[in-house]
Amino acid sequence: MKIQSNSVVALTYDLYTTENGEEVFVEKATEEQPLVFLYGVGMMLPKFEENLSGLGTGDAYDFHLAAVDAYGEKNESSITELPADMFEGMDKPEIGSVLPLQDNEGNQFRARVIGVTETGIQVDLNHPMAGQHLHFKGQIINVREATEEELSHGHVHGADGHEAH
């Protein structure tokens, strides 16, 4: 079976970015712990899926995504300062730490601490991989049709479709 909308895809990947002109390894999914997802329902980066379209079990892939097609360019307006009184009674976060935050509508997101002053904590709300070009290399392990239950739930129930909830 070839990858198409509403198929369940299990794959391996090695992910690299480029820093100072050098390719740097970021993370991987292995045959023992593959990435398994429902294709075509908006779970993955659109250009990631586009590069996998039509591949089948056993096929290898190797492609690059420009930052704009991955997590976007870094947006300088997404760097802000949180008032120090938000952290009263707590240890001030360290530079590089990640803070779990929530907006007024209950949406959860993360902010990376980039500075600490007496008056506040400077945070970067950009995705950690914003501004980075991505390089994926891997292999398709399995492609199958999604079950009706998976389609109605909008997510995969395991590589073989039988994961308990």
Results as ranks from 00 to 15, higher is better:
Met1Thr: 10
Ser5Cys: 15
Asn6Lys: 13
Ser7Phe: 11
Ser7Thr: 15
Thr12Gly: 06
Asp14Pro: 02
Asp14Thr: 06
Leu15Asp: 03
Leu15Arg: 02
Thr17Met: 08
Asn20Arg: 08
Gly21Phe: 07
Val24Ser: 12
Glu27His: 01
Thr30Glu: 04
Glu32Pro: 06
Glu32Ser: 11
Glu32Cys: 07
Gln33Pro: 07
Gln33Ser: 14
Gln33Val: 12
Gln33Asp: 11
Leu35Trp: 11
Val36Thr: 13
Tyr39Asp: 12
Tyr39Lys: 13
Gly40Cys: 00
Val41Lys: 01
Met43Leu: 05
Met44Pro: 05
Lys47Tyr: 09
Phe48Arg: 07
Glu50Gln: 01
Glu50Val: 04
Glu50Arg: 07
Ser53Leu: 10
Gly54Glu: 03
Gly56Met: 15
Thr57Cys: 14
Asp59Leu: 00
Ala60Asp: 13
Tyr61Trp: 03
Phe63Asn: 04
Phe63Ile: 02
Phe63Trp: 01
His64Cys: 05
Ala67Glu: 01
Asp69Met: 03
Tyr71Val: 00
Glu73Pro: 02
Glu73Met: 08
Asn75Ser: 09
Glu76Phe: 12
Glu76Val: 14
Ser77Ile: 00
Ser77Thr: 03
Thr80Asn: 02
Thr80Val: 13
Glu81His: 10
Glu81Phe: 12
Glu81Arg: 11
Leu82Glu: 07
Pro83Gly: 05
Pro83Trp: 02
Pro83Arg: 12
Ala84His: 08
Ala84Thr: 04
Glu88Tyr: 15
Glu88Gly: 11
Asp91Asn: 14
Lys92Trp: 05
Pro93Ala: 02
Pro93Gly: 06
Ile95Ser: 13
Gly96Ser: 15
Gly96Leu: 09
Ser97Val: 00
Leu99Thr: 00
Leu99Tyr: 04
Leu99Ala: 03
Gln102Met: 15
Gln102Val: 15
Gln102Trp: 09
Glu105Asp: 14
Glu105Asn: 13
Asn107Ser: 13
Gln108Ile: 02
Gln108Asn: 08
Phe109Gln: 02
Phe109Glu: 08
Arg110Lys: 15
Arg110Phe: 12
Ile114Phe: 05
Gly115Ala: 11
Glu118Tyr: 07
Thr119Ser: 14
Thr119Cys: 10
Ile121Leu: 06
Ile121Tyr: 04
Val123Gly: 05
Val123Met: 05
Leu125Thr: 05
Asn126Ser: 12
His127Leu: 07
Pro128Thr: 11
Met129Ile: 12
Gly131Ser: 03
Gln132Glu: 15
His133Ala: 09
Leu134Arg: 01
Gln139His: 09
Gln139Ile: 11
Gln139Met: 11
Ile140Gly: 04
Ile140Gln: 07
Ile141Thr: 10
Asn142Cys: 13
Val143Asn: 02
Arg144Phe: 09
Glu145Gln: 15
Thr147Arg: 00
Glu149Val: 03
His153Phe: 00
Gly154Cys: 06
Gly154Trp: 01
His155Val: 08
His155Glu: 10
His155Leu: 09
Val156Ser: 06
Ala159Phe: 06
Asp160Phe: 11
Asp160Trp: 00
Asp160Gly: 05
Asp160Ala: 12
Gly161Asn: 09
Gly161Ile: 10
His162Gly: 10
Glu163Leu: 06
